[in-house]
Design a protein around this nucleic acid. Sequence first.
DNA 1: AGTGAGATGGCCT
DNA 2: GGCCATCTCACTA
Length: 195
Amino acid sequence: MNILPQDFYERDTATVAHGLLGKVLCVRNDDGEILRSRIVEVEAYLGVEDPACHTFNDRRTERTKSMYLHGGHSYVYLIYGMYHCLNVVTRTEEHPEAILIRAVEPLPHHQPPLKKKDMKTNGPGKLCKFYDITKKDDGLRLWKKSSDLYIVEDSFEVLEKQIHACPRIGVDYAGEAARWPLRFYLKDNPYISRK
DNA sequence: AGTGAGATGGCCT
DNA sequence: GGCCATCTCACTA
C-alpha cells in the first residue's frame, strides 16, 4: 500500500480524476483506527474558467482558500447547510482546480453484500457523514501518512475501458459547462451515487 | 419508478 | 435575499 506522492496531484485535473478511481481513501477515526474505502466515483472541477467551479472567475474567498493551495491538499465545504463534500485539490497555486469525491466502496469487501438501504457511502454528502469528514478536515495534506485523511494505492487495477464519463450532477446553473463530461465512475460498481 | 418538497445555514451580491 | 457540487421522505401510480 503505497501513499500517493504530492506530484500525483499536480497533473491535469481530468487525468488525476481518472487516476483516483480505484485508489484507497484512508480516514483516521476518533479511536485512531484507519478506515479504508475504494474511490469509485469522482467529478473534476476546472477552476477559473469552469462556471460550475467554486473558483470560477478567480473567486478567492474564505471558503475557497484551500483550493488555492498546492495540489494534494483536501478541500472540504458545507453544502445546503447540512452536508459536507470532500475534494482533492489538483495542479498548483496558480490553478485552483479540484476533484469531488462522490462515492466510495468501504473495504475490506470480505463482508456480506449490503442492501441498498445500508449503503451510506454512495454519495458525496453521505460519505462525509459516514466518515465524519467536516471542515476540520479542510486543507489537510493527503500525501502524508500522518494526516487524518490520505490516499494510497494497492494492487487494484483500473482499465480505461472500465471508466464511464458523463455530465456532472447538480450543476445545471452552469450553462454549457453542465454538459461537460467531467463525472467519472467505475462501470458496474454498486456504490455509484446515481445511474 | 418517478416526482416534489423540505430541511438548514453559510456564502456571495 | 437568493442560491446551493445533497439527501430523505412522502406522495403518486
